[in-house]
Amino acid sequence: MLELKLVKESLFLNVLEAILDLVAVASVSCSSTGLKLQAMDAKGVAFISLLIPAKEFQFYHCDKDLSMGIAIGDMVEAIRSADKDGTITIKASDENFRNITVSIESPECNETTSFSLLLVTLKRFCIPELQGLLKKYDACVQMPSVDFMRICKYLSNVDGDVDISTIDKGIRFFALGKCGCLNVKYMQPEKATDIDISVQAPVSLTLDLKYMNSFAKVSALSNQVKLCLSKGQPLVVQCKIGQKTKSRIIYLLAPKIKG
């Protein structure tokens, strides 16, 4: 049986809200240690992996490992109507493993709304072990998420693709659209401690811009974001969620390749 409880204004829900423009259904695995969510966008271009340890929830109990396909779009839609201080309880039982129950309790505890959400069938993906994969990556950029968001905002003025390339002591974002082009150079400053650009080998990736803007939304939930690039490999964008938590979100974005 699984039971987890959270307040409406929790980070978990904010994260779900932020990923909804990319995905509507997700594979959610729960164990005694916490919750993992994996989802791929409808076009099969981006992949999201979210990890939230059990202690981040107001209440968390899972006595048996569970894996389920959840229409998170429908779930978030229902939760949106709840009072902002309301408490949300999500339950799945072993006896009837075809749906989950989401209950919303008002702050005064005088009103409870429950709805049953049918589970969906989804493929599970075996992604390579990420820390091992990233050791082989050519370049990593740790930067404040406000910088990343600003760069994505600049890029959103151009409609098309973005090339992210390593340059001497930094990286370059270059976008070419119908109305012109945009060039952002982001360098390693001499003193700042919250920027760390490490390049093992030169690399350049071409990526679909619209996904970058979705990624920027989630990085708003964290101070720092890390981008990792490697030739012919997906761009990895990872960030911790919140300040003192071990929750983290990782995006993988497939590059454009020579056709």
């Binding site: 992949f47 075996c126 997906p234 454009k256 390749i257």
Partner: peptide, 14 residues
């Protein structure tokens, strides 16, 4: 000309 690769090309399914 560049074409979009699929993310599934980078990992297997089960």
């Amino acid at each position: 000309v560049r074409k979009q690769s699929q993310i599934t090309a980078f990992f297997s399914t089960s």
